[in-house]
Amino acid sequence: MSLSTDVSLTNSGPGKPGATQEESQSPAQPSPRNNRRSRQRRERLFQWLFLVPAVIYMALFFGYPVVKNVVMSFQDYTTATFFTGEAPWVGLANYATVLSSSLFSTSLINTALFTIGSIVGQFVVGLALAIFFQRKFPLNGILRSLLLLPWLLPLIVSSAVWRWILDKDSGALNRFLGQLHIVDTGIPWLTSTSLALIAVVGVNIWIGIPFNLTILYGGLQEIPDELYEAGSLDGATGWKAFRHITWPMLRPVVSVVLVLGVVYTLKVLDIILGLTNGGPANSTQTIATQSYALSFQEFKFGEGAALGNVLVIISLVFAVLYLRASRRSVDE
């Protein structure tokens, strides 16, 4: 009757010796036991069919690119390859070129600064807002959901708007600062090598605050009120309550938010390309944008692939952290 129990029974058994023979037996005189077995096999096959399209898709659009990228990184893969079909093996030459280039250390440092700056900013402001929105006040829900807007807008739209706001001569920010007499001349937010990265990080913080706020708010809501009530009896209120009750209880959510944030920030491309295109003078070039430039602007696909793989390895380190943080919620 219950199919799921049938399945779990068969699944719980280890190997099934002789199962292959049963399948080839003629259906003319099925023994009841064999019949049931083959029905179960068909049943399981049917169940797998529901999953097959997703498995194929994931294999083609995530599995294949990763493998292909590794292969390409060992080849001299350029535009010529598209005409001749030849991509000679060059061993580690692509990695050697990419890693020894002076641009690599610049992009690596920029990637680190961009990621750390963005994550710290998003998290601190997001957590502060999440704690603020824990209070009960009129319109709380509506205002909180409207805050999601920056996160839902296409990144390239946000980049375009910020390009205009941060414009040196007539951008809103410089005009605002000018009217307050904080600055006399326009600050070249996006065109100065020393400011561009800070500006890009600032925009990325703006984009990431809603996500941090929402997830952390959800985490805060799950902390039972009784804990705070018990804590207040022991004199734990305000900062003490935060340190001894809120923070420990929020830790699992915090680690998921931070690691997800790092993984997503490492691969950011849209915002940087939209705001500065990696410039001025590579001051906002990250590993992701550099990989893009190598493949799609210089058409050195092999080198682009090699640099992409470096990014994958960095992400994988954080992937391990991510899986450890999220295993519980997935199993649950």
Binding site: V55, M58, F61, F62, L269, S291, A305, G308, L311
Partner: peptide, 22 residues
Amino acid sequence: VLFAILISQMIPGIVVANALYT
């Protein structure tokens, strides 16, 4: 499958694009 889905989130889009282009 679930593990693969989680891992897929770590793969930078530029890596996918690089291979898909060819």
